[in-house]
Amino acid sequence: MILSIALLLTVLLTILAFRTKSLHKIEVIVLIVFISNIVNNVYSMWGLNLNHIKTSDRMEEFISFVLVSAAMMPALITCMLGIILSIRTLVWKYLFIIISPFLLILIEYLADVVGLIEHYQMSIWDSLIVWTSVLLIAYIFRSFFYSLLKGV
């Protein structure tokens, strides 16, 4: 059940990411792969090395966790970047930038509620710092990759 929901959400968000007008398809592909790498770093360093996050030992939940962190979260973050880049009004742009990490925290804590992960000694503020950093790194990488595409 949880795997089906994760799969459905991943497919939907990936389609949504590819339909973003402000990002080219090559940017979407590379961004999803890049963010997947960053999310893996987050779970390896915070989860594995510091024992702040534990993944489920049940196979279905673990596969769902891998699917969510390797594909769904990167697709969602790519969509967010696409939206941020397409918003013209400065106020709305900054508002969305502020809201975005909280949306990611919401998903992380939903994953905790359904049993995909368990948080140990990790406060909501730690998560806020982590997801804001992920968004910032993704944005910097997008700018770098865009300059490569344009041959700057």
């Binding site: 090559i26 592909i29 590379v30 792969v33 890049f34 997947s36 790498n37 893996n40 770093n41 779970y43 390896s44 891998v66 390797a70 990759f145 490569l148 595409l149």
Partner: peptide, 20 residues
């Protein structure tokens, strides 16, 4: 350059998730 970056990221990511 863009293809090189895409390839480097692919191998880093797939290696990391497989190892994980």
């Amino acid at each position: 350059s863009a293809v090189i970056v895409a390839v480097l990221i692919y191998f880093a990511t797939i290696g990391k998730w497989t190892d994980y």
